[in-house]
Simulated assay, not measured.
Amino acid sequence: MSDKIALATWPTPMEPMPRLAAALGLRQDDLWIKRDDLTGLGGGGNKTRKLEWTVGAALATGADTLVTTGATQSNHARLTAAAGARLGLDVVLVFPGTPDSVANGSGNLVLDSLLGARVFWAGDSDPGSMADVAADVCRQLSRDGARPYLIPFGGSSPLGAQGYVEGGEELRAQLPDVEHVVVAVGSGGTMAGLIGALGEERILGIHCGAVADPAVTVADLANALTHRSINPDSLRIRMDQVGGGYGALNEPVLEAMKTAAATEGIVLDPIYSGRAMAGLIAAIQDGDIRRGRRTVFLHTGGLPGLFGHTETVHRSVTTLQSYKPV
């Protein structure tokens, strides 16, 4: 446990969202937002909590290079690059596809470059084999004289999830009577850590399409973290916001993004936090979250990814063009 390093200033803010609560039919003091988009490092985001543990472990082994995987707009990859820059470590990001296959070289990809990371393009490798490709990259780096350390997809391992045990304890100290915590589920470590701190009954995960079976993924991480035997079927995970797939923009998500922005000035991304907000709205509509119950929305960050999501940018610009000057 002593290998953890500091990469941000804690605690992140806990803020009320009275206008959004009223718009959704809740009491004004029912809905709060935990601002883990404001962690500071590299544009902010939830992955910083995990990286404090995984990068700390890397340094403890004497590593001089961090290697990790993700989609081309990966927030975890961007923050790994930022952590490496802060600590003087090389960073290699293993992405699927080729440079020519990236439709929009903006968003997180721009920041990856600014932060000094190198990208290894894995071509047509199956997404399930990316960890094997990354392991091959580590072996090549070792042959070249580097000392690489492989951080798993999304930073989600029992060690990385420890960051959100701390995050959950921090949240509870700020709002002791919290009954629901709504969070995006990508690689699973954030939800698993929150379960470790707050129990599975309080955590509502919103599946974003990043893994094939989110309940099993989260339960496996939570069990390794807590040394319990949590049944995946006992987890509260909504599966109804994935729509056309991980990278697709779905209408309920766009509407949720617009509602959060228009009522509270909170900007969400279309893959993770936007889906989580759409899931929160759906949970209120079907009665899973009710008026008078203290609820926290965990903002996991991801704003740079919005500008790398072509469909969201296009549809937002189209909306702006329909406005008439006053």
Rank of each mutant, 00 (worst) to 15 (best):
G128L: 03
D177S: 15
A71Q: 00
T259R: 14
D177W: 11
L221A: 09
R202D: 09
E251W: 11
V218W: 05
V317L: 14
P148I: 10
D144H: 13
L320E: 04
E166C: 10
V110S: 10
A134Y: 04
Q321E: 15
G209W: 13
G199Y: 06
G279R: 15
G301E: 11
F120I: 02
K324C: 07
T54D: 15
M239W: 12
W121K: 09
A103F: 02
G244K: 02
P325A: 13
G265F: 12
G40C: 01
E179A: 02
G265I: 10
R315V: 10
N46K: 06
T80G: 13
A197V: 00
T300W: 12
E166A: 13
P13F: 09
G62I: 11
E166H: 12
G301N: 08
L59W: 06
R139A: 13
A222V: 14
R19G: 06
A197E: 00
M130H: 02
P325W: 04
V317S: 02
Q73F: 12
Q321I: 11
S157D: 01
L115H: 03
T295S: 01
A77P: 01
P325V: 14
H314D: 12
W10K: 15
L268W: 13
G196W: 13
A57S: 15
D126V: 05
